[in-house]
Write a protein that binds this DNA or RNA. Structure first.
Length: 587
RNA sequence: UGCCCGGUGGUGUAAUGGUAACACAUCGGCCUUUGGAGCCGAGUUUCGAGGUUCGAGUCCUCGCCGGGCAGCCA
């Protein structure tokens, strides 16, 4: 059997003229590196000269909330495809067809966030509301062609006529009214002659369609509401299905990429374009939206968190919004790297938050300066170090990046170390300080703990009396003896106080709001811990909002926008991987 | 239960009829002036049943499971 398999196998290779080497020749569109089914469609279309080889995508947010990491996936996809194809372009289009939910502030933030992420729409910023007049014209055209009609049914009646998932709908009694009458009524709708909700314009398709979207969908409604751009000019507004495909066509979009829940809308998308004979015709392609563990990514739920005051605002560092992540200390590079890593497919999935954090650390590790900060200080006195003496020791800024250079840090008799780095009775595998133990102070000397001073009332350790070995400066011992631990520290006199905000996931539940729990019940009660007694090394006093650092042995931090000279505030972006915590957990 | 779309390790994504791979996570080891980073290694995978084929994750049929759709939201 095996030899037969081999025979055919090798014959195929022979016919193909070789194995691996021909993959590229046979498949010119197959590129190396990361690709996905959408990029393959785009490449194929280009290869056959569709759209004249042009590639135009669009990112079309409704300005009714802040952009979040899920939007980043779409932005990276759409702008990415445009950038990868010669002459490609990606439009940023505000899908502002529902004035009830949209605001100027959201337009502002979206523009800011797209640019921050690293994509520049340049002059290609558009608004669906700019097309209102043209869309209105298309609607009249549809009416004249007998493909749309004004319907006087109430909202409830329309719903009742729609039928169900298993039963066909019934036609509206207004469905066959003369086109001239519909046209007159539609013009009067525009003119403001009717009350909100009194009439709608509907596409005349098929009330028995198994696809409910095709059962004479509403395409215009009367809504007296100030629009953030058109003001009071209009009192009728087009619906998504009508406006979106035509906006794409107007902008000569070639590939209209959206999320899976619009799959059933595609036939409608195509229907309007076909009826109105617009050309060239954009193609809608759907992909799975991003879901992240320990996170919610629906605008409705995020709005709720903001409005209920669960978080401090859209840019709360615990929010998955781009504004929140930026404030948390995420970099555009990390987010883009993440979007590339997760790929694009049609399968519903939930990405592990750990992957996002990996991408974050991966970026920060390469680029960020190491500094020393003590979050929970414990005083250390070096008994054999002269009072008043100061030595400036050299410290490497980033071992991953020699170009980052070095700085000096002051060493003195009185220091602070992390309280967690001392144990009166060190457990097994605890490599840090304890009575009689010796450790290295990073960039400085070996110190030995001679005794711990405790508060007789509480038993709390208040100070460590230590000695140092002058022969271990720069970290090595002349006699070759080793120490197992290396601690971070700051000079008591030279360090500055700082507020440090330790952020964790907003939800402790991997799938918030599911499994019988409400969103509230899924919250992480420890998502924010504010530390006011932190001490930072002198160089950190100059930190400017948005600067990124690694606090040695602790994690990555960024200076908050609220940070002021003399009153620095740092946000923990993500902790360092902590092997000791893992060991301790198992013990 | 009508229509549409999906189902590949714990998670995500590849494999385009020809040896199921990469990343994260997990576990172990090495290294280390960060218990960081890095390096090496391990385990676990094609929803099920038939069919086509020399050969099926891939094509066909029937199931099963998951998601979407009954806004004058997008």
């Amino acid at each position: 059997m095996e030899f037969i398999r081999r025979l055919y196998y090798f014959r195929r290779i022979k016919l193909a003229g070789g194995r691996g080497g021909n993959a590229m020749e046979n498949n010119p569109e197959k590129t190396t590196g990361s690709t996905d089914f959408i990029r393959e469609i785009v490449a194929r279309d280009r290869a056959v000269g569709k759209n004249g080889g042009r590639v135009a995508t669009r990112f079309p947010p409704e300005p009714n909330g802040y952009l979040h990491i899920g939007h980043a996936k779409s932005i990276c996809l759409n702008f990415g495809i445009a950038a990868e194809n010669p002459g490609g372009v990606c439009h940023l289009r505000f899908d502002d067809t529902n004035p009830a939910k949209e605001e100027e502030e959201y337009v502002r933030s979206i523009l800011e966030d797209v640019r921050w992420l690293g994509f520049d729409p340049a002059e290609h910023v558009y608004y669906a509301s700019d097309y209102f007049e043209r869309l209105y014209g298309y609607a009249e055209e549809l009416i004249r062609a007998g493909k749309a009609y004004v319907c006087d049914l109430s909202r409830e009646e329309i719903r009742a006529h729609r039928g169900t998932l298993t039963e066909p709908g019934q036609e509206s009694p207004w469905r066959n009214r003369p086109a001239g009458e519909s046209l007159d009524l539609f013009r009067r709708m525009r003119a403001g002659e009717f009350a909100d909700g009194a009439r709608v314009l509907r596409a005349k398709i098929d009330m028995a369609s198994p696809n409910l979207n095709l059962r004479d969908p509403t395409i215009y409604r009367i809504r007296r509401q100030t629009h953030h751009r058109t003001g009071e000019r209009w009192c009728i507004y087009p619906m998504y299905d009508f406006a979106h495909c035509l906006s794409d066509a107007i902008e000569r979009i070639t590939h209209s990429i959206c999320t899976l829940e619009f799959e059933n809308n595609r036939p409608l998308y195509d229907w309007f374009l076909e009826q109105l004979a617009v050309s060239p015709r954009p193609r809608q392609i759907e992909f799975a939206r991003l879901n992240l563990s320990h996170t919610v990514l629906s605008k409705r739920k995020l709005l709720e968190l903001v409005e209920k005051g669960t978080v401090a605002g859209w840019d709360d560092p615990r929010m998955p919004t781009l504004a929140g992540m930026r404030r948390r200390g995420y970099t555009p590079e990390a987010i883009r790297g993440f979007c590339e890593t997760i790929g694009v497919a049609k399968r519903d999935s939930v990405v592990d938050l750990a992957l996002l954090e990996h991408c974050l650390r991966d970026d920060l590790n390469r680029r960020v300066r190491r500094v020393m900060a003590v979050l929970n200080p414990l005083k250390v006195t070096i008994e054999n170090y002269p009072e008043g003496k100061v030595e400036y020791l050299e410290a490497v800024n980033n071992p991953e990046d020699p170009a980052a250079g070095i700085r000096t840090i002051p060493f003195t008799r009185d220091l602070y170390i992390e309280r967690d780095d001392f144990r009166m009775e060190p457990p097994k595998k605890f490599f840090r300080l304890g009575p009689g133990r010796e450790v290295r102070l990073k960039h400085a000397y070996f110190i030995k703990c001679e005794r711990a001073v405790t508060d007789p009332a509480t038993g709390e350790v208040t100070e460590l009396r230590c000695t140092y070995d002058p022969a271990t400066r720069s970290g090595g011992a002349a006699d070759g003896r080793k120490v197992k631990g290396t601690l971070h520290w700051v000079s008591a006199e030279h360090s500055a106080p700082a507020e440090v905000r330790l952020y964790d996931t907003l939800f402790s539940d991997p799938a918030p709001g599911t499994g019988g729990r409400t969103l509230e019940e899924s919250l992480n009660p420890a998502s924010l811990e504010v530390i006011s007694g932190g001490r930072i090394e002198p160089s950190l006093a100059e930190a400017r909002p948005g600067d990124h650092f690694q606090f040695l042995r602790i994690g990555y931090f960024t200076a908050d926008p609220e940070s002021r000279p003399g009153r620095p505030v740092f946000n923990r972006t993500v902790p360092l991987r902590d092997t000791w915590a893992k060991i301790e957990r198992k013990q």
